[in-house]
Design a protein around this nucleic acid. Structure first.
Lengths: 256, 256
DNA sequence: CGATGACTTGACTGCTGTCAACGTGCGTGG
DNA sequence: CCACGCACGTTGACAGCAGTCAAGTCATCG
């Protein structure tokens, strides 16, 4: 417990402050995008580095009072809503560089819970301070709006996915989406480890976990992917993309 | 064409400027919420009132350059994405007081199209001006963030709806949602006219239009609603709510 | 009054959920 | 080191919800 590197209780130990936004490998996709170097320091000053979350630990729960946004520094989380009956619907998986908690600004209460899928560390960004700072730093304000806008746009895409697509198209779309998200983060888009279970994927896509399992099998037989537990290789990226985009042809042609 | 009231090309004719935000019945749910009276004037000055759109007319199309947000003043619109194959997925229906175009901020391009479902008038809010003003008016900046946050939260709810629910639950949820949105706007939550077609509803909910039609019939037989073409009466609001919330009990219990 | 589009209703099919049994990998404790 | 338990994942059988196709009705408008 003397070593500041380990899971110390002190969140502002010197060794952690060193990993400031400027040095962070995620500054290209995170909040600092479009913010001047001099201003990043100001941002840095309001950000708190928290000790890492263990797998299955909650960052916040549905109903918690909102006071800060969180940027995923490493690891991954899922966010989910729980119905009165206790069933959960996953609303998203969140990788390094992503900002979560944006849905809580409206009512100052978190409408969803966030749970770590693996050992995960996050940066805490107190909303009050961010709001104050965003007023002085135009680039920061714009980036925050861009991030929220992107979130809305992506959610619209997800609605399309959930509403119109077949199980096959959904899973293909999911894989392509994960692939490109890993690419953005500098990892191989053709080989990666997913951190969520089959059940999580199914829940997110609106499919039974058995269906996910079956489709993984079929995609593998068809030579589109190679899958061994959590390890995924994308072999037929093009075909998968086509599968994902496909569908929707059958549906009502509404054009008036 | 001489009458400034009618569909004049001049968007800043005196008669229209009179209907400023202060006098607008929507100021309680629109952008001015939380903005001081003195500041609303500033907001007013950047807002342009456009001539009304006719039914089926586009406000913007997918791929259009983004330059302004729009607030629905009266009437209603649908927003939708179109796939390469030409099929469309409706991403939302938008009533008076709602802000649309928020999903376009990220890339300065509209990812969806917006089309009037009936005669509809909107206020145009140039984004550049809004951004500049929001920097000076804290209440405005916060309200914009609140609105975007709410949009994200609502989209998450829609994902739950599309992913987990049965056709019956989806349609019940849709009706309850429309009901409460009309209530918010001062209309009866128990009797209203929907402005979209069965096909639109089905498309939005991820159902075939025939299924929507059948369910309307069944809900009517069960005494939950009374429906005649576009006119809807909610007779069993409680039962409908329960139907909408139900479901999801069967799904995977993921709790670790 | 006919044409057009919106809606309804019926018959049939198939995708995907459910239930159930079994296999696999990993951590724990003897 | 091995045996066990547990969570996770796979596979099979079956059934039902909702999509598709098709025909027919109804409302609106030129």
């Amino acid at each position: 417990m003397k070593m500041p590197e380990s899971s110390s209780e002190k969140v502002v130990s010197f060794s952690k402050v060193k990993v400031a936004c400027q040095e962070c490998s995620l500054k290209e996709i995170c909040l600092p995008v479009g913010v001047h170097v001099s201003d990043i320091e100001k941002l840095d000053r309001i950000i708190k580095r928290k000790k890492p979350l263990a797998r299955a630990e909650h960052l916040y729960r549905a109903g918690d009072k909102f006071h800060a946004l969180f940027a995923v520094r490493s690891g991954s989380l899922k966010t989910y809503v729980t119905t009165e009956e206790g069933a959960e619907q996953i609303t998203g998986f969140h990788l390094a560089g992503e900002l979560i908690g944006l849905d809580a600004i409206a009512d100052s209460v978190h409408p969803v819970a966030a749970k770590a899928l693996e050992t995960t560390s996050v940066c805490e960004i107190p909303y009050e301070s961010l709001d104050a700072l965003s007023c002085k730093v135009p680039g920061l304000r714009q980036q925050l709006l861009r991030i929220m806008s992107r979130e809305i746009r992506d959610d619209e895409q997800n609605m399309l996915m959930l509403g119109q697509k077949t199980a096959e198209e959904k899973l293909a779309g999911f894989l392509i989406s994960m692939s490109s998200r890993y690419r953005q983060r500098g990892f191989s888009p053709y080989e990666f480890n997913i951190t969520m279970s089959r059940g999580d994927i199914g829940n997110f896509l609106g499919l039974a976990l058995e269906t996910v399992s079956r489709l993984f099998g079929r995609f593998q037989t068809d030579g589109l992917i190679s899958v061994e537990r959590k390890h995924i290789q994308i072999l037929g990226h093009n075909k998968l993309s086509m599968l994902a985009e496909a569908g929707c042809v059958h549906k009502n042609a509404l054009e008036k």
